[in-house]
Design a protein around this nucleic acid. Structure first.
Lengths: 335, 335
DNA sequence: CTGAAAGCGCTTACAG
DNA sequence: CTGAAAGCGCTTACAG
């Protein structure tokens, strides 16, 4: 296999013109193309192991069958790389290649990542974030840009997890199983700032609505914007010291992890003595014992959806992706 | 910005030929290029916001300033995405773009991922794995392939973590701090199969050597090839039931997590009553309390190194990357 | 039903 | 010191 075969090689071997070869290989519907010619072309192409050169095609067509993925830093994050996988799967299904770049959410690096994708003539660009914040992304005339798991101040089409519905479902899940005395850890006004999150407000609203529809409200709530294990640990102790509860909703899995630690310290078994439900479905969630029931942030699905929208064009302003419940073993059925 | 400016546009605006423009913009050392011409070219290019079209350049040159990254599934894994980051950083530093693809370690998908990179005329290919196994990767004549965190049966150049040194260091770390009664969880003959791991043998050997040099051997060892929390949990109970130890070496962080759970159940504090050291540095390690001291698998550095080797060509058969100790709070100094 | 030729945006011998 | 022209590998009007 000295040199890669070109269209011209296939033409030569099949005794036809490059025009014809190109037509055949691209399935151009036409009066053209005698069956015989088509066969000769195909067998010549097969014999030479011909594969078209995408650069040449891109140069000619302006289309490259390439999609760019720019992340803030989802590549380094512990659980969001599923977004890349969603993109990759969808790209492969559509016979597209993925270019990747990282921006660190710095304006200059965003701009240069965008330039890079423009240079390479990506047919679409997905801008993915680990946390659903509001960001600045310049408007591009040349190519569709879709934001995954975030919103841009410029109003690009975006794909977001349906936090309201997930919050509602989490609360209802508890209520449906007979829980009435429920506490929450992780309430914070500060987190409503779109620079920090565009979805947490929805998460709160859904949870509150789910409870309210059952005529309930939280028996105790713990404030806290730093959603790490320590908050869950201290929060659980605070709750358990203050009142009797059968269930705790944790703002996320890391907080839930802290709740587990506090429960174990107090000799409380989950879920027999205390039920826990939470959000995110970090991989941590399936390592806890018992495994944690949690509402999954659908990174994979968001990646896939964003790619579809970017490539199909004409994306709606906002696309909601459901957050499926990962039903495991941390909630007791009281009925 | 109706249309992207081309070389011809710059030539027209500067009143010079495309030849000259190309020379100037590519800094061709030459007798050519009067200062004046160069200035005119550069200012025209700037005015038009000219950026060269990589597809056209690639077509002409055969070089694309592109590197391909094929993973088995590091993109979905929880802690290995650092490898992508290493690649991305190094690629950016060298002004290269990264194409990404996933193979799932299936021969057909490896082949098609490779084809894709060849089609796109990548200047180098990095094949990265999450777990350091031996795999089959076809030999490519056209472009250098470097394997990161694995070995190929075909003998491609590869980049591996220096497990022997890390094992040795972990053991010595304990010994140096006065530990004499040490146990190990995760010994397994079966894991020595290169289809499962090409590094675990080194890890064992390093640990054993570190102990032996101090005239020590393990007071207890727990067999186990399934390195999950459950093994650590049962293993720790087994050890603690059998004998007195001051420290446990866990085969990896997930095993260490199980050790923590068992210790807490028994009312043993880490590190006061029991020291733990382990391997991998999953993000879990910094969430445990106290934070876990562990030998880091240097994904980022392996990614970076593999890219360098792939691009610079002429890579050695095997390149070892050190596994830095992440010194945290799970080991007590007994001296 | 098929082919010769132009052109996508570059770089580089070659000639002056 | 500079430019006209060929060519990288494709696709597609256009002509027959």
């Amino acid at each position: 296999m000295a040199k890669r075969a070109t269209l011209a090689d296939v033409a030569r071997l099949s005794g036809l013109s490059t025009t014809t070869v190109s037509m055949v290989l691209n399935d151009r519907p036409n009066t053209r193309l005698s069956q015989d010619a088509a066969d000769r072309v195909r067998s010549a192409a097969a014999k030479l192991n011909y594969r078209p050169n995408p650069a040449a095609r891109g140069l000619r067509l302006g289309k490259t069958r390439t999609v760019g993925f720019i992340s803030d830093e989802v590549t380094i994050t512990r659980y969001a790389s599923a977004m890349i996988r969603g993109l990759l799967e969808e790209a492969e299904a559509r016979d597209h290649t993925v270019l990747i770049s990282e921006s660190g959410r710095r304006a200059d690096r965003i701009a240069s990542a965008l330039d890079l994708m423009l240079d390479r003539q990506a047919d679409g660009i997905v801008f993915g974030l680990m946390g659903a914040k509001q960001i600045h992304v310049p408007i591009l005339a040349e190519v569709p840009v879709v934001i995954a798991n975030a919103m841009s101040t410029e109003g690009h089409p975006c794909v977001l997890p349906d936090e309201y519905r997930a919050g509602h479902e989490a609360a209802s899940y508890l209520v449906d199983r007979g829980h009435r005395r429920i506490a929450f850890i992780g309430r914070s006004e500060a987190l409503l700032d779109p620079a920090l999150s565009v979805t947490i407000g929805q998460r709160y609203a859904g949870i509150d609505a789910g409870l309210a529809e059952a005529g309930l409200e939280f028996v105790h709530q713990v404030e806290g914007r730093n959603w790490e294990p320590d908050l869950g640990y201290r929060g659980a102790h605070e709750i358990l010291d203050a009142t009797a509860v059968t269930a705790i909703i944790a703002a996320n899995d890391r907080v839930a992890f802290g709740v587990y630690q506090a429960a174990q310290e107090r000799g409380l078994r989950i879920p027999e003595d205390l039920s826990v439900i939470s959000f995110d479905d970090e991989y941590l969630a399936s390592y806890l014992r018992p495994q944690l029931t949690t509402m999954q942030i659908p990174y994979l699905e968001m990646g896939r959806t964003a790619l579809q929208l970017a490539l199909d064009g004409d994306a709606p302003n906002q696309t909601m992706v459901p957050m499926p419940i990962q039903e495991r073993a941390s909630v007791r059925d009281l009925r």
